[in-house]
Computed example of a mutant assay.
Amino acid sequence: MAAHTGTVLISEVGPRDGLQALKRTMPTEAKINWIKALAAAGLTEIEVGSFVSPKLLPQMADCAQVVAAAREIPGLTVLALAPNLKGAAAAFDAGVHKVSLPVSVSESHSKANINRTTEQAIAAIADIKALRDGLPDDTPGAKAGIEIGLSTAFGCTIEGPVPEDRVIRMAALAIEMGAEAVGLSDTTGYGNPAQVGRLFRRLIAEIGLDRVGGAHFHNTRGQGLANVIAALEQGVTTFDASQAGLGGCPYAPGATGNLVTEDLVWMLESMGLDTGVDIERLIGAREVLLAGLPGETLYGHVADAGLPLGFEYANQARPAA
């Protein structure tokens, strides 16, 4: 394997992807405290919630309040997910820096997740871009980025294997409709390193590396970190992860377990890649998470084992605390 140097962006998705998978709701103030703790650990991009119907996901009913608080954190890029035009409008009104639109490659998952066909989901991108572009320059969301996450890109628990040609075709269509970046999501934990490397190689050839939004891996079958390595080999430098491995898709049966942020940061730093994240402060943020969700099961090898003796950050000017 080739040696890696440089920087990697970790996009923390726990406050959205993690919390939406839980049956209970984290209090708004606790969410904000957790997001502040994550940012204090050095995470510079956080998906703080989703603008969806509170009837479907009551855990996300306070998303506008959370976005407003997160916008006050210096240097933080605030993301939120929006499944449709109505959600995107609310996200722009709240002042997100980026809106993430989920588009399922699997027709069955698309209908279960957002109650739309994949064709309708792709077409909505143009409407959302038109809405954003029509906002007055002085409104909070006027300059928000529009990113697409291609869900079930590596397989679907409802349909099974997903054709790779379809993934690439949908990525190209998303860009054509006005998306500024497209990432691939292993929503169901089906992906393996060979498949990940092959699909990202094709994606980059199709839309260009500068338009690859990143990689979203679940650790359902223990392949999360291995899949990160495979994506790194193709030049991908943005990865989603969730503190303590919280999360999963409520509309994809068996899709549990996001990639653990703490474990991902340690692996990347150990490889010489600068994430800008202080691992010990990140592990400390788990206590803030537990304060808002008492008794919740948290995952992560690094949090359990601690940092190894002699560990050094990739950026030696940022020593371990």
Rank of each mutant, 00 (worst) to 15 (best):
T238I: 11
S100V: 14
A88L: 01
L264A: 01
G292I: 13
M60V: 05
I125A: 06
D93V: 02
I158K: 13
G276V: 09
A252P: 00
I128S: 10
F51C: 09
A317L: 13
A94C: 03
L290M: 15
Q59G: 00
E312D: 03
L259N: 07
R71G: 10
G306M: 08
G191H: 10
E119T: 14
L38D: 08
E233G: 12
K36C: 08
D165C: 13
T118D: 09
I207G: 05
D186I: 06
I148T: 01
A124I: 08
A144P: 11
G284I: 12
G248I: 09
K31N: 00
L273H: 08
V67Q: 02
L19N: 06
V103F: 06
V105G: 02
K55H: 09
G247F: 11
E176G: 09
Q243F: 12
V67E: 02
S151C: 12
V260H: 04
T139R: 14
E262P: 05
H97L: 03
P27L: 08
S11F: 10
G178V: 02
T139H: 11
A285V: 10
A226P: 03
N227C: 00
S185P: 07
T157F: 00
R16Y: 07
L298C: 15
T297M: 09
G189D: 00
R16S: 06
A124R: 14
A37V: 03
L79P: 08
G214T: 04
P58F: 01
R201Q: 13
V277A: 00
R116M: 15
F92N: 01
L19V: 03
F239A: 00
I207R: 09
Y299N: 13
S11R: 15
A231C: 06
V78L: 04
A303L: 06
L199D: 11
A112C: 01
E180P: 12
T5D: 01
E269F: 07
P27N: 09
L79W: 09
L259P: 03
G95L: 02
L101A: 01
Q234T: 05
R16N: 04
H301W: 05
A88K: 02
D274S: 02
R116Q: 15
E159Q: 08
G208S: 12
D274F: 05
K23Y: 13
C63Y: 04
T237Q: 13
S50H: 06
E269R: 02
E233Y: 00
L203Y: 08
S11H: 15
L22E: 11
I146C: 11
G189Q: 09
A241N: 00
E12Q: 02
P140M: 09
P140H: 11
A3H: 14
I46Q: 02
A317Q: 12
V52T: 04
V196K: 14
T28K: 07
I175Y: 11
S151L: 14
Y299E: 12
M177Y: 13
H218F: 11
L19D: 01
L184E: 07
E296W: 11
V48N: 03
T117H: 13
A142P: 11
T77G: 03
V8K: 01
H216F: 12
A40N: 10
Q316H: 14
G247N: 07
Y299K: 12
V99S: 03
G149V: 11
A64P: 02
A2T: 07
R24C: 13
T256K: 10
